[in-house]
Computed example of a mutant assay.
Amino acid sequence: MNYGVVSQEQLEKIDEILTEKLIKIGVDCVIIIDMAGNIITAKDNGTSKYDVYSFAALAAGNFATVDAMAKLVGEQEFSLLFHKGAECNIHFSKIDDELLLITMFGKSISLGFLRLNVVEAIERIKKIWARK
């Protein structure tokens, strides 16, 4: 996928999906990045204070490390990562081979509910990418 040709209209539709499926359920911040750590788009709840640029770079490195570990144990990939903290949780999910969806959320949202919404968001985002 060459996301360099994604139109402004497509990015706006993706932002709408992120808002509807994730921000509106209480997610603090959601970012779509490429595997090099470049931000494709980011949405937050208006009160998030995350440094999304630093976070994107570190997240890409984290995902690459885990991908290498998957290969060491004979897995093709681990397509989903989850980090649980006392106040903040981070959920990583692959959209495709080039893009990651990163979601930061508090303890008021259950992981199962979040994952359901992430899966739905990714399916809708994939349809938009396919129209390029």
Score class of each variant (00 low, 15 high):
127 K>Y: 00
20 E>P: 03
55 F>N: 06
102 I>P: 09
129 W>E: 12
8 Q>F: 12
120 E>A: 15
32 I>Y: 06
4 G>V: 02
33 I>W: 02
37 G>D: 05
85 G>C: 04
87 E>S: 11
54 S>V: 10
80 L>C: 09
18 L>A: 09
94 K>L: 07
100 L>I: 07
98 E>W: 01
83 H>T: 09
24 K>Y: 02
97 D>E: 09
109 I>S: 05
8 Q>S: 15
131 R>G: 09
115 R>Q: 14
117 N>F: 05
78 F>A: 11
83 H>I: 13
87 E>I: 10
128 I>P: 02
123 E>F: 10
22 L>H: 06
24 K>V: 02
107 K>D: 13
34 D>H: 02
9 E>T: 10
120 E>Y: 06
35 M>Q: 10
118 V>F: 00
90 I>E: 12
75 E>W: 03
93 S>W: 02
53 Y>V: 15
114 L>I: 05
83 H>R: 01
110 S>F: 10
119 V>C: 07
84 K>V: 14
48 S>C: 08
75 E>A: 14
71 K>G: 06
23 I>A: 01
91 H>N: 13
129 W>C: 03
46 G>E: 06
48 S>T: 01
19 T>I: 13
128 I>L: 03
92 F>M: 03
27 V>Y: 00
68 A>Y: 01
119 V>Y: 13
26 G>D: 04
60 A>I: 06
107 K>S: 09
73 V>W: 14
33 I>D: 11
52 V>Y: 14
32 I>Q: 02
57 A>R: 02
22 L>P: 03
24 K>Q: 12
93 S>N: 09
55 F>C: 00
7 S>C: 04
58 L>S: 05
